[in-house]
């Protein structure tokens, strides 16, 4: 989605899209900043419900955090393959990244069901509300990322796909890594610091 400009002034479309992506990610920082600070305000307001120490399972969350972290590695390798125009490799790494993302989401679903069994729901207490809304908001970002990864991988088979246009691998990658760094913060601030 970019206007082709006159060659003389050679505004590079990839550069224009990357500027837009970084601007957008800057804005997303405030989005997650608001959610995380809401959680920090309410982290001890558990009412009669369970507290963070009661429900959090740090070993389990550590593993799923590690999986998301490693998906950034596969993502950057996909980007590297696309730069070298090795599209077979690229598709492989894209699908691997998407699979790691799905695994992370599955872990989140499992975690949520466990918490609900232990009596923590989104309505139990402000702690519950802010925890579930923050983490599922992040999960929605992961889901959107998985969708974009799969669409990019699929589109690369068709003739309509141009490596330099639309949702190219680099933009999807920037988004994906951003979702990962948000989780780095969440893992520390929401999980490790609260038990």
């Amino acid at each position: 989605m970019s206007v082709a400009l006159h060659e003389e002034h050679a505004h590079d479309p990839a550069h224009i899209r990357k500027v837009a992506m970084w601007v957008f990610l800057g804005s997303e920082c405030l989005l997650f900043g608001t959610l995380i600070s809401t959680f920090l305000l309410y982290r001890t307001r558990t009412g009669s419900g369970p507290t963070a120490a009661d429900v959090f399972d740090i070993p389990f969350t550590s593993v799923s955090s590690f999986i998301l972290l490693m998906s950034s590695l596969t993502m950057v390798l996909a980007h590297h393959s696309s730069v070298r125009k090795d599209y077979r490799q690229m598709r492989l790494w894209l699908v691997a990244t998407a699979l790691l993302g799905v695994t992370f989401l599955a872990g989140q679903v499992f975690e949520f069901t466990e918490f609900v069994h232990e009596g923590l729901t989104v309505t139990t207490s402000p702690f519950g509300s802010s925890f579930f809304v923050l983490t599922s908001f992040h999960g929605a970002h992961v889901a959107v990322g998985v969708l974009m990864l799969l669409v990019t991988a699929l589109m690369s088979f068709t003739g309509k796909w141009r490596p330099d246009a639309g949702m190219d691998v680099e933009l999807v990658g920037l988004y994906w890594h951003f979702v990962d760094i948000v989780w780095i913060v969440i893992f520390t601030v929401v999980y490790l610091l609260q038990v």
């Binding site: 804005s27 997303e28 920082c29 405030l30 989005l31 900043g33 608001t34 959610l35 809401t38 305000l41 309410y42 307001r45 558990t46 009412g47 989104v122 309505t123 207490s125 402000p126 519950g128 509300s129 802010s130 809304v133």
Partner: peptide, 29 residues
Amino acid sequence: LPIITIGLLQVFLDRNLGTGFYSAASGGD
């Protein structure tokens, strides 16, 4: 705008899902 986006989301959830972000009765502020 991202800040109010989250605020509005919390208002909407308080109204429709029964979360306790802004309800003093359940400990919200």
